Computed example of a mutant assay.
Amino acid sequence: MSWAGTGEAFAASYAALCAGTGETMREIAGPARGRTLLDVGAGDGTLAAAWADAGWRVVATEPEPSMREVAGVGHPQLTILGDGLPHLSFGDRAFDVVTANFVLNHVSAPRVAAVELRRVARELVIATTWTASPTALWGDVIARAGLIPAPSGRLPADKDFERTAEGFAGMLADAGWHAEVTELTWTWHADPEALWRSVAGGVAGAGAFYLTLPDADRERFRSAFDALVAERADDGRIPMTQTAAIAVDRLD
């Protein structure tokens, strides 16, 4: 899946969803006390900025230029570098805490990437992944529109991991983590217009699929989306239950 050019569309839509784990992650890490933090795969910078506001000395990395551009505009106080997994240009144990929020579910070699996250952490490393798809709505839209969904795009069996808390823990154990994995469930009240902006902007699998459609199928897709919004919206927003696994490895 390519994220090229999706920075603005992501910032206007799924950035708010992905930030749903932020408070819990900061609680796990404890008070800043001047500690350093590396946020890997920082996207539009929302979470990195929240860590900085909480008193952490933050460095963020994001390999996608459009994401870095949006982050730089929205959070000019951040240091945002172009590093991306599986290779980070930092020394061993360079940061007190390292975070990767919904990153390992997008890389081509999750175990290799997880090893690298742990390598640059001194005290603590925290990573998250979805265990219930945050974009199940789009599967419903595709079915309502009578379209044939794209192949899942899963990794080869020797690279992939089961998208459950247990599967996430097992993959991380393969990478040398001694992780405690818990699940967090919350309801995201999504703005339908933001959701549409995400898919029209090519964000994630649904957006990539939409951009491949001919005009007639795009119209069917939009009509199905509008129908589902009319059925599901509550006070103008769509409640969507989300579940994420949060893995913590305490290195001290």
Rank of each mutant, 00 (worst) to 15 (best):
E62I: 02
V125D: 02
A48T: 12
F90C: 03
H75A: 06
S108L: 03
V73Q: 15
G176L: 09
G72H: 08
T61E: 07
T79E: 15
V107G: 02
P192F: 03
L213I: 05
I246D: 00
N105Y: 01
L228K: 08
T164D: 05
V97Y: 01
W196P: 03
V97M: 00
T21Y: 01
D140E: 14
A173H: 07
A113P: 00
R111I: 07
R57Y: 02
L124G: 05
G43N: 08
D53L: 10
D234A: 10
A208C: 05
R118M: 10
G22W: 05
S89K: 08
A94Q: 13
L17V: 12
D39C: 03
H87F: 09
T187E: 07
G170Y: 03
A165V: 09
D83Y: 07
V70S: 10
M1H: 11
A109T: 04
G82V: 03
R35A: 11
D53I: 00
V97N: 01
G170N: 15
T24N: 11
G74D: 06
A247T: 11
G176A: 09
R222Q: 14
S198V: 05
L104E: 03
F209H: 06
M240H: 08
A245F: 06
D44C: 10
C18T: 15
A49I: 08
V115I: 08
A194K: 03
V203Y: 01
R144A: 14
L251P: 11
L104V: 07
A165D: 14
L85H: 09
D217K: 10
L104I: 06
D158T: 01
H189G: 01
T182K: 12
L147P: 00
T79F: 00
E183Q: 10
G45N: 03
P192V: 04
V59Q: 02
S152Y: 06
L147D: 05
M25H: 04
V229R: 09
V229L: 08
T131G: 00
R237W: 09
A204L: 02
G202L: 03
P239Y: 11
Y14H: 08
T185E: 13
C18E: 13
P110Q: 02
I80L: 03
A16Q: 12
P156E: 08
W51C: 11
S13P: 08
